[in-house]
Amino acid sequence: MISYDCDSLYAHLGSVIKQKKTMTGPDKNTLFPLEHHKKLCFLKNLIDDPKIKVGDYTYYDDLEDVQNFKKNVKYHFDFTEDQLIIGKFCMIASDVSFIMNGANHLTDAITSYPFAIFGNGWEQAMENKSYPTKGDTIIGNDVWIGHNATIMGGVKIGDGAIIAANSAIVKDVASYSVMGGNPASLIRKRFSKENIEQLLKLQWWNWDIKKITRNVSALTGNDLSAIR
């Protein structure tokens, strides 16, 4: 008859379970991926607005409360049609604001005052007119947006871009660009043109999570040939 040391067996099983969990990465469907830390969330699991779409593993880190993210998507009214679309594996810091198209006023008229919203006869102000819009605000994959940055409505930020803290993004940002300032301007490209083209073809964020897990060491390095 074979006897077992229960304590050793349980310890072994615990080790196997922990290893399996580690090798598959965190659960993308959990709100708080860091145990005992409620100020960083996988954003997709927080959002309940159909006009905001967020990819897997994108996180929002707030100094106070992750619910602040909803308040920081500003002027996103029900009657506007624009969407906020954020890709996978993005990193969004505290106090990042998205100024949606509902904030827009007329700029080529005698006055930019929004008479129509007050009614009582002023609604005629916008007959046969419409407020300007720049379309959806689109954030690519693997984008890092620093503390207190502001993203204006209709802006498109390419994959792999970095937005410095306190920056105001008022126009489109090319992939793998580092932007900073108010209004933001290009600080530098993260990689050579050839490497950027290779990375955009690679699209690592669309890999199976097991392949990403196998390559986490390579992905945090700078040798493209090390990726398997």
Results as ranks from 00 to 15, higher is better:
Ser94Glu: 06
Asp159Met: 08
Ala116Gln: 14
Asp108Ile: 02
Ser130Pro: 00
Lys74Leu: 15
Thr80Glu: 15
Asn120Gln: 14
Glu127Ala: 13
Glu123Asp: 15
Trp122Asn: 09
His147Leu: 12
Gly158Thr: 09
Met152Trp: 04
Thr137Leu: 05
Ile117Leu: 03
Pro114Asp: 06
Ile162Gly: 03
Val155Leu: 09
His76Thr: 10
Lys88His: 13
Thr133Asp: 12
Gly140Ile: 07
Asp108Trp: 01
His105Pro: 05
Tyr75Ile: 05
Gly102Val: 02
Met152His: 04
Lys129Met: 13
Ala93Ile: 00
His105Ala: 07
Asn141Phe: 06
Met91Tyr: 15
Asp142Lys: 07
Met91Leu: 07
Ser112Trp: 08
Ile138Thr: 07
Ala165Tyr: 03
Ile99Lys: 02
Tyr113Thr: 08
Gly119Glu: 05
Val73Pro: 04
Thr107Tyr: 13
Pro132Thr: 08
His105Glu: 04
Asp78Lys: 14
Phe79His: 15
Val96Asn: 01
Lys156Cys: 09
Asp159Asn: 15
Ala116Val: 00
Ile162Asp: 05
Lys129Asn: 03
Thr80Ala: 09
Ala103Thr: 01
Ser97Val: 01
Ile157Trp: 02
Ile85Arg: 12
Lys156Pro: 02
Asn166His: 14
Gln83Ile: 03
Thr133Asn: 12
Lys88Ala: 10
Gly87Ala: 11
Thr111Ile: 09
Gly146Ala: 09
Leu106Asp: 07
Ile162His: 02
Gly140Trp: 01
Glu127His: 11
Lys74Met: 15
His76Met: 15
Gly158Ser: 12
Asn101Lys: 00
Thr150Val: 15
Ala116Phe: 11
Gly160Ile: 06
Tyr131Val: 12
Trp144Asp: 11
Phe118Cys: 02
Gly87Val: 09
Thr150Asn: 08
Asp136Leu: 05
Phe89Arg: 06
Asn148Cys: 11
Met126Ile: 12
Ile162Gln: 07
Ala109Thr: 06
Ala165Leu: 06
Asp136Cys: 06
Asn101His: 01
